[in-house]
Write a protein that binds this DNA or RNA. Structure first.
Length: 279
DNA sequence: CGCACATCCTGTGTGC
DNA sequence: TGCACACAGGATGTGC
């Protein structure tokens, strides 16, 4: 599930492939991917635009264009696939047997960028400007941006009564953290995920801030080695498990105190933690 | 405004 | 072995 580090790695690998390229046309194979926007409108508006860059805000991948921008969100399984040409796309994509499932493809003046998501949760949207993009407008500062300081985090924590885990998942407060790295950050900070956000002392907030930044940077290093290779449709991030200390380690000993990691439910989703040393 | 909860979708895992 | 079904996950919309 791409969170901030994964999307950052994708952005860095994608940038040299698309920067300065012109979109010849957009193929929408599965209209659900542009919902609630109309696929025809997206195709029409993106046609002929030049891609200025590839960038990221939270878990969103952005392709600023010379006219408007494209915004992508991978949700759980969304991924990018690179084809050398339109004929390779048509030969390999959406074929009955082991065809790569592509929802949206941007045919560029050199190469084709495919957005694939077999579960159809991921989205590709066109917006006339950054300011017109509703999901970005409600986004808090990026978790690894200089804007997200310890004081800033402490201030935001103080104004929320929600459990820490749910606070960290709220993209409007801080952007980029998902289910995996929220559990990891709380484990590293020795904080109980059920604790109310506004119960943290300044010292606690500093600990949490430090944990968030280090967890995300460590994960990014993992995601960059090896870097995403969009040419291989089977490619996906590997080796993250090595650095995970809580997530999906239910029943395994805590690496700090040896007690079993537990899986608890919060807001309808799983949280992994050591209730013995996370206070 | 803040928060709880249902919704979307499909491959995987579990239980019989 | 095969089948049925619950489940996971992030953002959004609705209702309190």
């Amino acid at each position: 599930m791409p969170e901030l580090p994964e999307v950052e790695a994708i952005t860095r690998s994608l940038r040299p492939l698309v920067r300065g390229r012109r979109i010849r046309c957009a193929h929408i194979f599965h209209p659900i991917a542009t919902k609630p926007q109309s696929p025809a409108q997206l195709a029409q508006l993106a046609r002929g635009c030049r891609i200025l860059d590839a960038s990221r805000r939270g878990k969103y991948l952005l392709l600023p264009l010379d006219r408007g921008l494209l915004e992508m969100h991978f949700r759980f399984d969304g991924q990018l696939i690179w084809f050398r040409s339109a004929s390779e796309l048509l030969r390999r994509a959406n074929q009955s047997l082991d065809g790569v499932h592509v929802d949206v493809a941007l045919e560029l003046d050199k190469g084709v960028l495919g957005f694939a998501d077999q579960r159809h949760f991921g989205r590709v949207h066109y917006w006339p400007s950054l300011a017109a993009c509703p999901s970005l407008r409600s986004l808090g500062p990026d978790a690894i941006s200089p804007q997200c300081t310890t004081s800033f985090l402490h201030e935001r924590l103080s104004s929320s009564r929600r459990p820490l885990k749910e606070f960290l998942l709220d993209q409007s407060r801080i952007a980029g953290i998902g289910n995996i790295y929220s559990a990891e950050a709380l484990w590293h900070a020795c904080l109980d995920p059920r604790r109310r956000a506004n119960s943290l002392s300044r010292k606690d907030s500093a600990k949490l801030h430090k944990a968030i930044v280090s967890v995300l940077h460590r994960a990014l290093e993992c995601c960059l080695h090896p870097a995403p290779d969009f040419r291989d449709p089977r490619w996906w991030f590997q080796g993250i498990e090595k650095v995970l200390r809580a997530y999906q380690r239910e029943g395994l000993p805590c690496r700090r105190c040896g007690h079993a990691i537990e899986r608890i439910e919060q807001g309808g989703r799983s949280t992994y933690c050591c209730l013995h040393c996370q206070k």
